[in-house]
Amino acid sequence: ELVLALYDYQEKSPREVTMKKGDILTLLNSTNKDWWKVEVNDRQGFVPASYVKKLD
């Protein structure tokens, strides 16, 4: 499943990933309501769920 980055996000820990507004990311896990695991540029990590939106 793919998600769209709604905002820029700068990683604050090694478990997170940086994304730019408009990026298309692969959603790996959305079981946590606050932090979703995504893959971007061959890196996996977490981003705030409120910063991304699922693409239909």
Rank of each mutant, 00 (worst) to 15 (best):
E1M: 14
E1N: 12
E1I: 15
E1S: 14
E1H: 12
L2A: 08
L2C: 08
L2S: 08
V3S: 04
V3E: 02
V3N: 01
L4Q: 12
L4I: 15
L4N: 03
A5P: 01
A5W: 02
A5I: 02
L6F: 03
L6E: 04
L6T: 04
L6R: 05
Y7E: 10
Y7S: 09
Y7V: 09
Y7P: 00
Y7I: 08
Y7H: 11
Y7R: 15
Y7A: 11
Y7K: 14
Y9H: 04
Y9E: 00
Y9W: 12
Y9G: 00
Y9I: 01
Y9N: 00
Y9P: 00
Q10N: 14
Q10L: 13
Q10E: 14
Q10G: 07
Q10M: 13
E11H: 09
E11A: 15
E11G: 15
E11F: 06
E11I: 06
K12F: 06
K12L: 09
K12V: 08
K12D: 06
K12Y: 06
K12A: 11
K12R: 14
K12G: 08
K12I: 07
K12C: 10
S13D: 11
S13Q: 08
S13F: 07
S13R: 08
S13H: 11
P14W: 10
P14Q: 11
P14L: 10
P14C: 12
P14G: 10
P14E: 14
R15M: 14
R15H: 14
R15E: 12
R15K: 12
R15T: 12
R15L: 14
R15G: 15
E16T: 07
E16N: 05
E16S: 06
E16V: 05
E16G: 12
V17Y: 04
V17S: 02
V17P: 01
V17N: 04
V17D: 00
T18N: 07
T18A: 07
T18Y: 04
T18H: 06
M19F: 10
M19E: 01
M19N: 00
K20S: 09
K20L: 09
K20A: 09
K20P: 00
K21A: 15
K21M: 09
K21D: 02
K21S: 08
G22H: 06
G22V: 00
G22D: 06
G22N: 07
D23A: 08
D23G: 04
D23C: 07
D23I: 04
D23S: 08
D23F: 05
I24H: 05
I24G: 02
I24D: 00
I24N: 03
I24Y: 07
L25E: 01
L25R: 00
L25C: 10
L25K: 00
L25Y: 10
L25D: 00
L25N: 00
T26R: 15
T26G: 09
T26I: 15
T26W: 13
T26D: 04
T26E: 08
L27Y: 02
L27A: 02
N29L: 09
N29A: 10
N29H: 07
N29Q: 11
N29W: 07
N29D: 15
S30A: 13
S30F: 07
S30I: 07
S30L: 05
S30Y: 07
T31W: 09
T31Q: 13
T31N: 13
N32V: 05
N32D: 15
N32S: 10
N32H: 12
K33E: 11
K33G: 10
K33M: 11
K33C: 09
K33H: 12
K33T: 11
D34A: 11
D34I: 14
D34G: 08
D34S: 11
W35S: 02
W35K: 02
W35V: 03
W35H: 03
W36G: 01
W36Q: 01
W36F: 07
K37V: 13
K37S: 08
K37T: 08
K37D: 04
K37N: 07
K37I: 14
V38H: 00
V38W: 00
V38G: 01
V38M: 01
V38I: 08
V38P: 00
E39Q: 15
E39T: 09
V40L: 15
V40C: 10
V40M: 15
V40W: 08
N41L: 14
N41Q: 12
N41E: 13
N41D: 14
N41A: 14
N41G: 15
N41P: 10
D42H: 13
D42L: 11
D42C: 13
D42I: 06
D42K: 12
D42G: 15
D42W: 07
R43L: 06
R43H: 08
R43N: 07
Q44R: 11
Q44D: 07
Q44N: 08
Q44Y: 07
G45W: 04
G45I: 06
G45R: 01
F46W: 15
F46G: 01
F46E: 04
F46D: 04
F46M: 09
F46S: 03
V47S: 00
V47K: 00
V47C: 03
V47Q: 00
V47P: 00
V47M: 01
V47T: 01
P48S: 02
P48C: 04
P48A: 02
A49K: 06
A49R: 09
A49W: 02
A49E: 04
S50Q: 11
S50T: 11
S50D: 09
S50Y: 09
S50C: 11
S50G: 11
Y51A: 10
Y51L: 12
Y51V: 05
Y51P: 02
Y51S: 11
V52T: 04
V52W: 02
V52G: 01
K53N: 06
K53Q: 14
K53L: 13
K53S: 11
K53T: 14
K53E: 12
K53G: 10
K54A: 08
K54L: 14
K54I: 14
K54G: 05
K54M: 12
K54S: 07
K54C: 08
K54H: 09
K54E: 06
L55A: 05
L55D: 05
L55R: 04
D56L: 10
D56Q: 11
D56P: 13
D56H: 13
